[in-house]
Design a protein around this nucleic acid. Structure first.
Lengths: 338, 338
DNA sequence: ACCCCGCGCTAATGCGCATTAGCTAGGATC
DNA sequence: GATCCTAGCTAATGCGCATTAGCGCGGGGT
């Protein structure tokens, strides 16, 4: 391939020539290096700035990155397809937050779309990844690859996970949702309504988000009762067989499916059974029912992740934080039937 | 700021040392330069490749860009907010197409989110833009800034607009929707149903997409009759006053609003009046009515734009193409009332 | 015995910028 | 008048890579 670009672009040297100074001076002016070592009189500075403005010169980001190691570009890696697909809607709000914050901070976002999907999963570290073009990276997805995480940590690459993650050969910086607290609060409300047989419908293990929900549940009921999710009919069977008066649905969609089936069988929600959802739908779950549960502060998580990342890039120390979820009052939780 | 990175990263020199060859050789192997000038025996090549694999070395994209002028990164510039906001839904499908194609081609996407919004508009060429980090750029939005376009053209920066654009100091490469043909077809269908007073409800000027729709309309009716959009009630007045038997709504939302008002006034659609929509909703327009009209091949346009852009980046010549829209049969077009 | 040639590789260069050592006045100091 | 500052610059260097010259060497030709 032909090395140089078609038409010559302006470089600092050009600006220097036009302003009658050295390239160094242009760089100094550009970066506002008016510090002790290099004082540039206002006159010279203005002259340079004028030429820059007139010519519309802009520093080459690649060269900048190479020389200075920074370029105000943040990477975004999504382990699950974001745009296409059903889960897209779930991840969208995170991206909104990320975008908002990046814009605010004058950062561009590099979407690592080139990561190939192998065995249905993506990896940050694939052949020819371009991680290093960005100053740091935000990781998004229900489940992150542990090898990726370990390597990121090992290499000291600045990153922040959206969603809590277990350690991976070192501390993993994250901005997560405080599921334990949110679930704990829901359980408390449920118990306050007289419920004693409160079941947890979900896996309770696997992704950190499931583990955390279950932890919040198990930590606030006397006798945890976990029911596996599955086909709607199966779930209904299990719930009824267990004699639960209230059910916490790990997945919103399962709560919806359960409620639908129950309705068809003449079991009223919340008359006969209360159904509480633990978060926002990660799969499409059309319903007219207004479920009681909580919202994950997705947008805020995205924002905060970018905040933390920029701080990290600028030399700060990695943070791990959980953001509170928002309780949402619905119509599916009612006092236990006497 | 401290010039070097915290922990030293692998460079080609490191690989060279480990493999007992020169940095040049590593570069040659990496880029598969087995051509005439430099022949590297399989043995050496394998040795180098092995070291690369073992160490997980990946070339620094910034350095690569600087030296070779390419880095398989495509920029995406959106003139209108994409993620947040109402119009987001309209632009989403374009992005899906862009993302799909980029993934397929092993390209990463650089979202130019840092462009500040001034006077409610964004500009590609803002202070400190990072255009040059990408090999080229896809432009998205209802209206593009003409100065931006002119400068892009003038500088010979590779870009492709999603949506047809008028020339701007030179040919503007684009992938647009063939509105004239699509509208022409709708008019033909409408006339085939006996309609003679077919009105165009919209501006018919401004953005190219409006102009093109109107052109398709004006070119296929004997006496064009354009009605300005406005408040729902106003639109209904105008349509009724004009004695139209069919209306083409430039904006989907206007078609919806019009139909709603008419229904409330006892004017039936399509019994008394046919309402045809010219494209997908660009603003939220909730309705249960299934409008007759056409769909803009948004996803395909995104894909094609990336195709064209990569071709352009690789030295191809700029293309201008219009993609056909998809006619959608609805319930709002019926034979004219006798 | 000499030259030439092509194979297999490497030294050197430059991309555009940031940064670190100077270097050169012109004054102040002794 | 020699010395030392200091303000105001600039030359030189390197970031990591791609690329262009070109070097050394062994074998075939004359």
């Amino acid at each position: 391939m032909p090395p140089p670009a078609p038409s010559r672009r302006l470089t600092q040297r050009d600006i220097a020539r036009l302003a009658g100074v050295s390239q160094t001076t242009v760089s100094l002016v550009l970066n506002n290096r008016a510090d002790a070592e290099s004082r540039i009189p206002a006159e010279t500075r203005d002259r340079v700035l004028r030429v820059i403005k007139e010519t519309g010169y802009v520093a080459d980001p690649a060269a900048r990155r190479l020389a200075a190691g920074r370029n105000r570009i943040l990477g975004v890696f999504t382990y699950e397809p974001v745009f296409p697909s059903a889960t897209g809607d779930f991840f969208h709000p995170f991206l909104i937050g990320i975008e908002e914050c990046a814009e605010q901070r004058g950062c561009d976002l590099l979407l690592f779309t080139s990561a190939p999907t192998v065995d249905g999963r993506k990896r940050v570290y694939h052949q020819d990844h371009r991680l290093r073009l960005a100053d740091g990276c935000v990781l998004l997805g229900r489940e992150l690859d542990r090898e990726d995480l370990a390597r990121l940590v090992a290499e000291g690459y600045p990153f922040v996970s959206v969603g809590r993650r277990d350690d991976a050969g070192g501390t993993v910086p994250y901005v997560g949702a405080d599921y334990p607290a949110a679930v704990g609060e829901l359980v408390a409300r449920t118990r306050a309504m007289g419920h004693e047989r409160i079941a947890y419908l979900g896996h309770g293990r696997g992704p950190e988000s499931y583990v955390d929900r279950y932890r919040g549940y198990a930590g606030s009921v006397p006798e945890p009762l976990r029911l596996d999710p599955g086909e709607p009919a199966e779930m209904a069977e299990r719930v009824l067989a267990a004699g639960a008066t209230a059910v916490l649905a790990e997945e919103y969609a399962d709560g919806v499916a359960l409620t639908d089936v129950l309705a068809r069988r003449g079991v009223s929600v919340p008359g006969d059974l209360s159904v509480i959802t633990l978060g926002d739908p990660t799969r499409p779950a059309p319903t007219d029912v207004d479920f009681t549960g909580f919202r994950i502060p997705r947008r805020e998580m995205g924002r905060q992740a970018v905040e933390d990342l920029t701080e990290l890039v600028e030399g700060g120390s990695p943070a791990q934080r959980l953001l509170p979820c928002q309780y949402t009052e619905g119509v599916t939780l009612a006092p236990v039937r006497k």
